[in-house]
């Protein structure tokens, strides 16, 4: 994964502007160039009046997108970045993903308001759709992660939560290059899910001493990851905690002063996710730092 070109979409909202600032931070550190994109949401025009479309509204939305993209490009240029601005018309999430596909984009940086549950299942979220469908890694930035006033803007440490699954190992393999490019310290964290383990034990009654039984394979897994990463020249920190995965990941991010979290996505959507949720999902919505996610390779 080389990161030469970042795509930064904006809809003019505060969340998008804050995300763009973090995107520019990232681009600066990576010495990457940026594409800023604003999409005129065509569903607004098709919803108008009795005719079901309004050329006039389409035009207004495009003008507005033009203003937003141009303004953001100026901001990028002022920060010394090589920037391209673009305007598209259509369904925002789809246009963003298509644009990334067509222009050889290496990663997308997008703001998210952190909506979850039923509200998201109904309203949807552009960031969410982009995370689930983008062909490249997506960096999501919550409003909290967008505030850079009291934190440094450099990305010096990246947290890779791992549950030992193929999915998380795959995500780690693909995101280590990012740590490379940023010259960031790599943190591997495994959270032992107490609730899950206890539930399983109460069902199967394994009678084993819970703590040691569980930590052994975990330590082994972390050691393998760390050895490999160190061999590639990374500075590595490993950690194990127990509790609820998402909560522990966020807690570790704060206490260890992590600048970015890297994870794989589960790819669930709609009501299924509203009910089941996913760890990645919760981290994306609530992380105090940008979160980079990659979709499973096979999709």
């Amino acid at each position: 994964m080389t990161l030469n070109t970042l795509l930064i979409p904006t809809d003019g909202s505060d969340v998008a502007q804050a995300a763009a600032r973090r995107g520019f931070d990232l681009a600066t550190q990576l010495e990457a160039n940026v594409h800023v994109l604003s999409v005129a949401d065509s569903s607004i025009a098709t919803g108008a009046g009795y005719s079901g479309d309004s050329a006039s509204i389409r035009r207004r939305l495009r003008e507005q997108a033009d203003v937003r993209a141009t303004a953001l490009r100026e901001t990028a240029t002022a920060r010394g970045l090589e920037a391209t601005a673009a305007v598209r018309e259509g369904i925002p999430a789809m246009e963003i993903v298509d644009y990334a596909d067509e222009h050889g984009i290496d990663a997308i940086v997008i703001g998210t308001v952190g909506r979850g549950g039923v509200a998201r299942a109904i309203i949807g979220s552009v960031a969410d759709k982009v995370v689930r469908t983008a062909p490249v890694p997506v960096v999501t930035v919550t409003p909290a992660a967008g505030e850079t006033a009291d934190q440094q803007t450099e990305f010096d440490s990246i947290l890779f939560p791992t549950d030992g699954s193929e999915r998380s190992t795959d995500a780690i393999d693909r995101c280590l290059a990012l740590a490379d490019a940023l010259e960031a310290t790599v943190h591997f964290l495994t959270v032992i899910d107490d609730d899950l383990a206890e539930t399983l034990e109460s069902i199967f009654d394994t009678g084993a001493d819970p703590a040691s039984e569980r930590t052994e394979p975990v330590d082994e897994h972390l050691e393998t990851l760390a050895t490999r990463a160190r061999a590639d020249g990374h500075e590595v920190v490993v950690a194990t905690t127990s509790g609820k995965p998402a909560t522990e990941i966020l807690e570790y991010t704060k206490t260890a002063g992590i600048d970015m979290v890297a994870m794989g996505t589960a790819g669930r959507s709609g009501f299924e996710r509203a009910l089941l949720g996913s760890v990645t999902d919760r981290v994306i919505r609530t992380a105090p730092v940008p979160v980079v996610t990659v979709r499973p390779n096979e999709i």
Binding site: R62, T70, T84, A86, V87, R88
Partner: peptide
């Protein structure tokens, strides 16, 4: 006029 890349159409702002 806009120097940004955009999709041209019959109701385009160009």
């Amino acid at each position: 006029m806009s120097d940004l890349e955009h999709q041209h159409g019959s109701d385009c702002a160009c």
